[in-house]
Design a binder for these strands. Structure first.
Length: 211
DNA sequence: TAGGCCATCTGGTCCT
DNA sequence: AGGACCAGATGGCCTA
């Protein structure tokens, strides 16, 4: 496995441990980390279950692609699950905004004071949802609808096709990642392989661990 | 066989 | 001090 990398050394003064103690400690730490990752995977599976069309199929299909438009039959990868979930959240946000807007129009048209959003909006009847946890969305429709909902007034740039691109005002505030079409036209695709868009730039994270 | 995805190990840092 | 969190490295499995 990995030893200490060159130039690295523990900053903690270590109490002398016998090899057995070190081994036991290492086992303990590894076990905790395994458990942590397993919990993370459980949460990821719960998220996958929401993406019904892709969550339950075995990996037996032979010609499945990892791309968003690929037919179902394969478990969503982690990155795909996260991107889809994000898009779905954005879509719900847009739907909510649109419904509020329509409600406002109806209220004005009827000369009724506009009150809080009716419970109707929260009690079901949501578009795209047929029951608890049951989405009627396909991965492709999610991606495309999120894109269209967020870019109804955007340009026809290639970026507009990306679910993570051209976010509207609301979505922009939710978009931690930024994309660029840097490079030649039809340049490098996003390395995530999910959105099929030009390269995206991870915002430089604040150096949490100055080294 | 190359590439994608994943689990696991490991060391460092932060938090309680 | 111990646990949680994070990121890098590694190796296995699977698919195109």
């Amino acid at each position: 496995m990995l030893g200490l990398q060159t130039g690295q050394r523990s900053t903690k003064p270590q109490r002398e441990l016998s090899p057995e103690e070190q081994q036991e400690l290492r086992r303990k730490i590894n076990s905790r980390e395994r458990k942590r990752m397993q919990d993370l995977n459980i949460a990821m599976d719960a998220l996958r279950e929401v993406m019904v069309p892709y969550a339950s199929s075995p990996s037996s299909a032979s010609s499945q692609s990892h791309q968003p438009g690929a037919p179902p039959g394969r478990r969503l990868s982690k990155i795909s699950t996260l991107v889809l979930a994000r898009n779905y959240i954005l879509l719900l946000g847009s739907s909510l905004q649109e419904m509020r807007r329509l409600l406002g129009e109806v209220s004005v048209g009827m000369g009724v004071n506009t009150g809080p959003v009716p419970r109707l909006l929260l009690a079901g009847g949501w578009p795209l949802i047929s029951g608890p946890g049951q989405l009627l969305l396909t991965q492709e429709s999610l991606l495309s609808s999120a894109s269209s909902s967020s870019s109804s007034s955007s340009s026809s740039s290639a970026a507009a096709k990306c679910p993570l691109l051209s976010p509207g005002p609301m979505e922009a505030s939710l978009a931690p990642v930024q994309w660029s079409s840097a490079g030649a036209s039809g340049g490098p695709l996003c390395p995530c392989g999910v959105c099929r868009l030009p390269r995206f730039n991870h915002p430089a994270p604040a150096p949490r661990f100055p080294k």
